[in-house]
Structures are given as C-alpha cells and as structure tokens.
C-alpha cells in the first residue's frame, strides 16, 4: 500500500492506494498516529485509490478517530468505492464517522 500525505491549509490529507489489510495496517497506523502526535488536528483520509480494506484497516481508522476526538480534532473520510463504503456500514462505523463523496466535500467540512 502507498500512502501520500499532503498538508494544506491546516488539514492533513492521507491518500491511500492499494490494499489496507493486516500486512499494511501497522505502517498506516504509525503514519497517522505520528502525524496526530505531531499536532495534526484536522485529518482527511482519501479512499479514492484504495481497492481493499479489512477489519485491520477499520481498527486503525477507529483508533485515530478516538485519538483525534480526545484532542478536539476532526476526521473526514472521502471518495470510497461503494463496496468499501459497505464495509463501514456493516461495521456500523458510518454512525459516527463522516463519509463524503469527494475530497472537495471533505475540505468544505473544515
């Protein structure tokens, strides 16, 4: 999996490419939590190029969301393939995580 991190106007965007599974979730967790502990409060995760996510990936998103909440931060998820979005819905994560259609929409939320 490739992760591209872009900082713009006080928002850090993580663009994910490839597969977020048990093999790749640890490196993503480290990147995300390192950014948060370095002071990042506003996070967008762009799923446009992500082909695959398993519960290991959901776990990282959940952990980051809880950490950001404690620090009065905010997370937005965007541009998911419909079957990736379905995983968030089955897990019930869509009840507390904002999922929007595009990166532009995600930026507008900040």
């Amino acid at each position: 999996m490739d992760i591209v991190e872009v900082k713009q106007g006080g928002v850090s965007t993580f663009k994910l490419q490839g597969r977020l599974d048990s093999n790749t979730s640890q490196s993503f967790e480290k990147r995300l939590l390192d950014a948060i502990s370095d002071g990042t409060k506003n996070v967008i995760i762009d799923f446009k190029e992500l082909d695959y996510i398993s519960s290991a990936g959901l776990r990282v998103i959940l952990k980051a969301t809880k950490t950001l909440k404690r620090q009065d931060g905010k997370i937005m998820l965007c541009a998911m393939q419909d079957y990736v979005k379905e995983v968030f819905e089955i897990a019930g994560f869509d009840s507390f995580l904002p999922i929007v259609a595009s990166l532009d929409d995600a930026f507008k939320a900040f």
């Binding site: 398993s54 519960s55 959901l58 776990r59 959940l62 969301t65 809880k66 909440k69 995983v87 089955i90 897990a91 019930g92 994560f93 869509d94 009840s95 507390f96």
Partner: peptide, 23 residues
C-alpha cells in the same frame, strides 16, 4: 459486536467475523 454503536462504545473485537457473517 453491538452495531450500530457510538464512537466511545465501539470495539473492534469480533468485527472480522461480523463482516464475514454479513457478506
């Protein structure tokens, strides 16, 4: 796991099997 849940209540244990059963 309890689905849906709030962020504070949400636990990741058992999530994988929950996905399998639903899919």
């Amino acid at each position: 796991p309890e689905v849906p849940c709030t962020l504070d209540e949400c636990k990741v244990g058992g999530l994988g099997i929950h996905l399998v059963k639903n899919l």
